Every structure is written in C-alpha cells, then in structure tokens.
Computed example of a mutant assay.
Amino acid sequence: MSDERAERIADFVAPLRVKPGSKVRLDRGFDPRFKAGLKKRDGKELLRAGVSLLAEYQERLAAQDTYGVLLCLQALDAGGKDGTIRHVMSGVNPQGVRVSSFKVPSAEELDHDYLWRYARRLPERGEIAIFNRSHYEEVLVVRVHPENLARQRLPADARGPGIWQRRYREINRWERYLTDNGFKVVKIFLNLSEEEQRTRFLKRIDRPQKNWKFSAADVRERRHWDEYQDAFSEMLSATSTTWAPWYVVPADRKWFARICAAAILAHTLMDIDPQYPDVGNAARRELLVTRRELEREAPAGASADPYADRHPSARKKRG
C-alpha cells in the first residue's frame, strides 16, 4: 500500500475483520446498527469516493493480469447482498467483474463434489468474481436443513458427526490453494438484526413494486433464526484465516454496509497494489514510430497531438 488513502482504509476496515482463531458469538460484540460515528448524509460522498478508488484499482488489476479477486457475500434473507453489489460495483468496468448467484443445486451439480459448482465460477487473472452466496452455503443452509445433505448422496462414512469440522478444514485448504496461486479471497458477512429483517420483509409485502422479492419461504427460513446465528458464529470462528479473512459488516443501515463493503474490497486491491505493465523498449520504439505517423495525418490547422496539448504532463512523460 503506497499512500495515505490505503492507511485510512486499513484503519477503517480493521475493526470489522474477524481475528483468525477467535471465538465468534454474533450475539456478543457485533452490533448490526453500528455506524462508526458516521452520518447518513456523509455516506453518499464516502461511497462515491470508494467506488472511484475501486475503478482505479480494478483497471490496474486487469492490466497487470496476474492476480484475481474472489469476493464472497453471505447474509440471511433481506441482508442487502444485491443492493451492496449494485452500489459498490457501480463504477467499475463490467468486463472485469463477474457475479454468480448460487441457488438450489441442479442434478448435475449434485453429481459432483460440493465445491465443484463454485470452482467453475472462480475469477480469471485480472478479474473480480463476486459470489452472491457462496461455498459457505455448504456449512450453513445444508447444516440447518439436513435433508439438503442427504441429497448430496455422500458415502455413509462421510456423513458422520465430524462432517462440519471436516468441511471447514477443506474450505480453508481450498482457499489457501487459491491464494497461493494469486487469487485473493475476501469474505463479507452482512450482519442483519432480526427486527430489521422483519421490517424489510414487511416493506416487500407493503410495496407492490417489492412484492416480487418476497417469498413465503423467506418467512419459513426466519423460523430457524437461532440455528442460523449459531451456524454463522461457528463458521466465522473456524474459517477466518490470515489468507482469507472474514469481515462482519453491520447491515441494519444499508448505506453504512455499502461503505464498508467498498472499503474492504478497496483494501484488498490496494494490498495487491497492481501495476500497469512495462511494455519494454522495443514496444516503446514502435509506439514512437506509430505516433509520428498519426501526427503526420493531422488535417491542416489541426493539432498534431490534441491529447498532449490538453494534457501537458503526458508530453513531459514521453520525453
């Protein structure tokens, strides 16, 4: 990280990071309404600055073509995953970002190991991939609803009481493998309170334009609130690592959650610090020849190089 912005962002996201090896209890020390002393009126400008920063570093990431970034978003229903993606990624080049949402697995997906469908959607080098829900569904939904595990048709000796601890280890190793190969993994849990979820569900019912987002299944899942809180707490405790940390983002205030998500992703990219590639002396000589040809093509009365006229610093850099 090379400038003051990086230090400020690192300080901002540090309290959200789950310390590897720590014991997480979501009902203790994680306030879904926390806003770090910020006011909503300042939120738009902060988010705008974060989006601008992301655009700058995403372009460098794509140009360098060495690293890739996988962003995993987890939350309960109405946690704000879709809105976070839409707002945080609003200023980046869509060619360099791919979003994957994982629903109920298909018959083909169930015929493979549980990580197979996620591995197929991993980022390429130079790309940001966003998992809207992720491989962590395999230790969350599948854990809360054992019938989903039964559909995976595992061998009998693989369905024992130690399955969740084994999956935590497998996921940690898989993510370590990815990071060792140049793919950064960053994981965000949008921490929503039970009352705020109830309010958002009612909003989806009361506003006709939001009806399509609501399903009775959402309320059925809400009945498992305590089970999900336990599953999330254990997952965060077991899988926040130095190479792929979890960040718990307070999600009751959507504007603050989006600022946090932008800051966390920007922090990841700034830590990579991707650089534009050096084209080399031979390529630069070829560029000089091409520029002279283009300058000779200038119409009568037109500038030979309009861009350099408008940006004198560019003329100085090229010498």
Rank of each mutant, 00 (worst) to 15 (best):
M1P: 09
D3L: 02
A6E: 04
F12C: 00
F12D: 03
V18M: 03
D27M: 11
R28Q: 11
G37Q: 12
R41I: 14
K44C: 01
L46D: 02
R48Y: 06
A49G: 08
V51G: 12
S52M: 01
A55C: 02
E56T: 13
Y57D: 11
Q64T: 00
Q64D: 08
D65W: 00
V69R: 00
K81I: 14
D82H: 10
D82M: 05
T84P: 11
R86F: 12
M89S: 12
G91Y: 06
P94M: 03
Q95S: 09
R98S: 12
V99A: 09
S100Q: 09
S101M: 09
K103Y: 05
K103G: 14
S106N: 09
E108R: 13
E109P: 04
Y114E: 13
L115S: 05
R117Y: 09
R121I: 00
E124G: 07
G126L: 07
F131S: 02
F131M: 01
R133A: 02
S134K: 07
Y136N: 07
V139I: 15
V141N: 06
N148Y: 15
L149V: 08
L154I: 00
A158G: 01
G160P: 05
P161L: 04
G162I: 02
R169A: 14
D180S: 12
G182L: 00
K187P: 08
K187F: 08
K187E: 10
L192H: 01
E194P: 03
E196S: 05
I205H: 03
A217Y: 05
A217M: 07
W225T: 13
M235G: 05
S237L: 05
A244I: 00
P245Q: 05
P245G: 04
P245F: 03
V249T: 08
D252T: 06
R258Q: 13
C260Y: 01
P274C: 02
Y276V: 13
D278G: 03
A282M: 12
A282Q: 11
V289E: 14
T290W: 12
L294R: 15
R296Q: 14
A300H: 06
A302C: 10
S313G: 04
A314K: 10
R315V: 05
R315D: 08
K317W: 07
K317I: 07
R318Q: 11
